[in-house]
Amino acid sequence: MRPMSSLSRDEVAHVAGLARIHLSDEELDTFAGQLDSIVGFVASVNEAAADDIPPMSHPLPLTNVTRPDEVRPSLTADEALSGAPASEQQRFLVPRILSED
């Protein structure tokens, strides 16, 4: 098992980038300290459970719950687009998704 490391300011910046959240320098300073103490606390789970304990992802033992594949009323295009920041021709209008070069 990997030893617990503390969470550095650079790591917070990196993880925030992965999560697509821009952070100001000031936010980074605050969060790095707070998250480091939270990570220090939650790391205690490492000593808690032995290897032979199965993981539990969910309280109910359910598998492959499906409902009948039936056509039913759903949102109209106008309803689906009603909260969109921008739309055009009954579609979501988004910023460019490819780089220019």
Binding site: L18, A19, L35, V42
Partner: peptide, 28 residues
């Protein structure tokens, strides 16, 4: 923001077993 960053970190490569995986065992 704190919770998203914490969760992203706990699920990230190299930490998953030590954090999320262990937490799921504690849940058991």
């Amino acid at each position: 923001k704190r919770r998203i960053i914490l969760g992203t970190y706990a699920l990230s490569s190299g930490y998953y077993d030590a954090y999320y995986g262990q937490a799921q065992k504690v849940r058991t």
